[in-house]
């Protein structure tokens, strides 16, 4: 309770500020319209109109929420026929619409699915590869000396700039669709996992390593019973960074080739000046990111609790 009240207050203040910002951002257009029509625009009328423009400079929060609904399971998204069949909306009809939304390419649910599948595939590849490389680095001094500095340096450079090239080059050799985006997601999640996992596998101190030695543990036992369990908190911390980075990578990877996904919705929205579409896609991406990071956090809490490492 002591935490939710301040958080809710701050959120409410942010939304209120957003509403206040809507008025001056959209007012110019309303005054222009009124001057052209030769009519006088009273202040209250003007405020009401700024909240309901079709292509506002800054849409009001409720417009974004309605847009999000319309573009996921609303009539715009699921098609006219499905819309007519399920109006008035019942629970069953809503279910039908959700099912339809997964396959309709005008629905954000479909586009979020495209983005999510590439993100997850890339995240799995990147995480798996990252953990393997981290094990190699911890057990091989040559790899530690030669590869590790590059893994650390790669954190400071904008490797996401490679994304358009990877998409276009792979496309030109006939690989398109899911795989190129997943490759970008994979290399963006790869390096954080390597760096975090190396730190984690090295976290047992000399005393603990000596203890394993007094039990005459083999190398494999030291790894399975001591290094791997001790690395879990580090692994999960980097998984959270990695999955957020993988999502960003996928969205940027969707920009050059228009094959569906949240990145395409962002870009086409900006081409056609459909601000509500941009904001809805942005919020869909935010919900997706929050959901993914939240799921990793949930698994983290369960795993660490089972292992007796509750923080």
């Amino acid at each position: 309770m002591s935490r939710s009240l301040p958080v809710l207050t701050v959120t409410a203040v942010l939304i209120a500020l957003w509403y206040l910002a809507v008025i001056p951002m959209n007012a110019t257009w309303e005054y222009d319209q009124a001057r052209r029509a030769g009519t006088e625009l009273p202040f209250t009328e003007m405020v009401a109109r700024t909240m309901a423009q079709e292509r506002p400079v800054l849409p009001a929060p409720h417009q974004v929420v309605i847009g999000l609904y319309q573009q996921t399971v609303g009539c715009d998204a699921v098609g006219r026929r499905m819309c007519r069949e399920t109006t008035p909306l019942t629970v069953q009809g809503f279910g039908q619409r959700v099912v339809a939304a997964f396959t309709s390419n005008r629905s954000l649910v479909y586009h979020a699915g495209v983005t999510l599948s590439a993100t997850m595939l890339g995240f799995l590849i990147g995480t798996g590869g990252g953990i393997l490389l981290a094990i190699g680095i911890v057990y091989n001094r040559a790899m530690d000396a030669s590869v590790m500095p590059w893994a650390i340096a790669s954190q400071t450079i904008p490797i996401i700039a490679l994304a358009p090239m990877i998409i276009v080059v792979l496309n030109s050799v006939g690989i398109s669709g899911l795989v190129p985006k997943a490759i970008i997601a994979a290399y963006l999640s790869f390096f954080p996992v390597v760096v975090g996992m190396v730190k984690g596998l090295r976290s047992p101190d000399a005393m603990q390593m000596d203890q394993m030695k007094t039990w005459s543990a083999t190398g494999a036992q030291v790894f399975a019973r001591l290094r791997l369990p001790m690395s879990m908190p580090y692994l999960f911390a980097s998984l959270k960074v990695g999955i957020a980075a993988a999502l960003v990578g996928t969205i940027v990877g969707e920009l050059p080739v228009q094959e569906g996904g949240l990145g395409v919705r962002l870009l086409s929205g900006s081409y056609y000046g459909q601000t509500i579409q941009i904001w809805a896609a942005l919020f869909a991406a935010a919900i997706l990111a929050a959901g993914l990071v939240g799921i990793v956090g949930l698994i983290e809490r369960r795993v660490l609790a089972r292992m007796g490492m509750k923080r």
Binding site: A244, V248, V252, L266, T275, W279, L282, A285, A286
Partner: peptide, 10 residues
Amino acid sequence: ALPIIGTAPI
């Protein structure tokens, strides 16, 4: 943690 880069078109 959100993909803030998506605000770019706005």
